[in-house]
């Protein structure tokens, strides 16, 4: 399907909607901290069950003001809600579910993704301290890993690369990347274009350093 207008990059909201449409309605999905959060609302609207690794199955939208409960938070420690049919589980059970193959999809942010699907999203090279949280478990354990990110870093470098320069979270796990410029899939040698936003061309992206298949 087409999304967005003919001559503009996709907005975050449009990316979230597109991701939600690509998710099967009976999947269990973990939505990571940061940019992937744009998918929460459209996934909730489609009735897709969301998993939060701190121990919620059936994560709902943010509570309205005055209805926050300090015991109902998401993995980013923001106030959350639970949908009908949801459940609370302990952390060991939550990660058994992840590693054991019950999580259909992890939506994650990225610093870099390589052509063979390596993911770097927890610590920038050169920084001493960072949190890994559940990222390595999710990236390894989820049946699919899709990334939601801007295609280019603040310095203009492509986040889709031949080889990651930042420390890896997991090797060979990323199946698809959603960005404001388009949707891409690593094929081992480069990235295949699945769709491009309005006005974006593969030639232009290649000039800006995105390793695309010919």
């Amino acid at each position: 399907m087409t999304i967005g207008s003919e001559n503009a990059l996709w907005t975050m909201k449009e990316i979230g909607s597109r991701v939600a449409l690509d998710v099967e309605s009976d999947w269990l999905v973990n939505v990571g901290i940061g940019m992937p959060q744009v998918a929460v609302e459209p996934l909730n609207e489609r009735g897709v069950m969301l998993h939060s690794e701190n121990g919620i199955i059936g994560l709902g939208p943010s509570p309205s003001p005055g209805n926050e409960d300090p015991d109902v938070i998401d993995a980013g420690k923001g106030f959350a809600t639970v949908v009908a049919g949801g459940a609370f589980i302990d952390s060991a059970t939550s990660f058994s579910l992840i590693r054991g193959g019950r999580l259909d999809l992890a939506l994650m942010g990225a610093y870099e993704v390589s052509v063979n699907g390596d993911l770097a999203n927890w610590r920038l090279a050169g920084r001493k301290i960072a949190g890994i949280g559940g990222a390595a478990d999710l990236a390894h354990g989820a049946r699919r890993v899709w990334i939601i990110t801007s295609l280019f870093a603040n310095d203009g470098a492509s986040k889709l690369v031949q080889q990651c320069s930042h420390p890896l979270t997991a090797k060979g796990v990323v199946k698809r990347i959603y960005t404001e410029q388009g949707i891409f899939e690593p094929d081992g040698a480069a990235f295949k274009v699945v769709a491009l936003a309005g006005g974006v061309t593969a030639t232009e992206l290649a000039i800006r350093g995105v390793p695309l298949t010919d």
């Binding site: 060991a92 939550s94 990660f95 590693r99 949280g133 559940g134 990222a135 478990d137």
Partner: peptide, 14 residues
């Protein structure tokens, strides 16, 4: 600091 992935941390405790 000893840093562990969250799932590994909780399983080491379990």
């Amino acid at each position: 600091l000893e840093l562990e992935p969250q799932g590994t941390l909780v399983e080491r405790i379990r």
